[in-house]
Design a protein around this nucleic acid. Structure first.
Length: 137
DNA sequence: GCCAACGTTGGC
DNA sequence: GCCAACGTTGGC
């Protein structure tokens, strides 16, 4: 199983909204970046991801799971754009802020730090485990 | 609100 | 195929 990180501005789509969708989950539409799209294409059902709030909060607030693999994004006018469907699994007991990630040497190579503009990004197994521990999981 | 970083576009 | 111009993202 692979791990990922999904970034969203809570003004546009928040963790609470994601939770409200329940088991059905929600299509992760709107990605218009090749790298991010390719990351989604690499996802398998059952893969897990962090849900990160950008701009407001700037912290990892929850865990999500991929419940449908990459399919055409219905909100795109070009069929080259895909999206996956994700559902909320659980909130993290203690949110992990971007500041904390930056201050943690073990996490200094995360895409979140290295390429802050990548909206859907891979997370290494070690990074996943480390953050889960930090977050009280 | 500003601006640096980065991706995309389009002229040559 | 290069690169300048432009638009967008997201941290601060």
């Amino acid at each position: 199983m692979a791990f990922w990180l999904f970034k969203s501005e809570p003004d546009a789509w928040s963790w609470d909204q994601q939770v409200a969708k329940g088991e059905a989950g929600e299509e992760w539409t709107g990605v218009r970046n090749y790298q991010a799209r390719n990351n989604m294409r690499a996802m398998k059902v059952g893969d897990r991801g962090f849900f990160y709030h950008s701009n407001i909060g700037k912290e990892i607030v929850g865990i999500v799971e991929v419940c449908a693999e990459s399919a055409p994004d219905s909100t795109a006018d070009d069929p080259k754009w895909d999206c996956v469907t994700i559902k909320a699994v659980q909130p993290v007991p203690r949110p992990i802020t971007l500041e904390e990630v930056k201050q943690t040497p073990e996490l200094a190579d995360m895409v979140l730090v290295r390429n802050s503009r990548m909206s859907v990004q891979p997370v290494r197994d070690e990074e996943w485990d480390f953050i889960c521990k930090m977050a009280g999981l």
